[in-house]
Amino acid sequence: MPPTTASHPLAPALAAANQIILGKDRQLRLALSCLLARGHLLIEDLPGVGKTTLAHTLARLLGLDFQRIQFTSDMLPADILGISVFDRTGGEFRFHPGPIFTQVVLADEINRATPKAQSALLEAMEERQVTIEGATRPLPDPFFVIATQNPAYQIGTFPLPESQLDRFLMRIELGYPDRAAERALLEGRDRRALLAEARPLITPDALLAEQSRASSLRVAPPLIDYVQALVAHTRTAPEWKTGLSPRAGLGLVAAARAWALLDGRTHVLPEDVQAVLPAVAVHRLPTAGEQRSAAEVARALIEAVPLP
């Protein structure tokens, strides 16, 4: 779906990101929509397809702080959230904030950590604040977690259960670049160098304003009908053990709003819902040993539900 060129405050950032991460326009848009909808992103893919670069690029172009947490099996919650250390000079405990206290967090290979460490991150994502030793500390705003999961090597890992997957607004796959993009990638300059040159194209305040603009986009009654029909279908169709939760429905509307905003519109169309559906809905639908890709599942769902 070729995007319409619209003069949108985020359009330059998106264009610049496309220069760094080649051939991944759709995923970049989804990631940006996820950020605009105040959700968190889970990327499930093999190593080396550009997960870190994507997170880094977004943070850089949007002028946000960036931290990366590499999850390991011996990781403790304190390694994420931070810890109080006795300060000899001050004669008191001082809190050393963990890497989570930043605007964009890349939680790399989240499935390698124990559920205990995972849940520390997930709680922070949900609450947008951290309570350590009785003190509640707010996380920065905007706060955006990009978690990655490696689906190929499952031995000794703790893949997130479906109930935890629900915490992520979107799950996307990056996939290999196509032939032309890969060629450009191989011929072009080092991505790190490009990243280092990149300038922020929007201020954090403007980004916050865009977030609130996205949430006020018009959603007409027929569109609500459509979302309801989609959700209802997943609840009654036999393909899935359980249907989409109300949280999924909310997420669908929020993500569709952000997608419509990136498309330069003031109202949400069914196409916006359909565009975000593979990323928003499919990881919340537990399938019984199904081998279809997210796009195929979403396609089947879309084609099963007529527009009201």
Binding site: M1, L269, P270, E271, Q274, I302, E303, A304, V305, P306, L307
Partner: peptide
């Protein structure tokens, strides 16, 4: 139009 097809598509 397909029953699920949005106006833009």
């Amino acid at each position: 139009r397909h029953s699920w097809e949005g106006p833009q598509d």
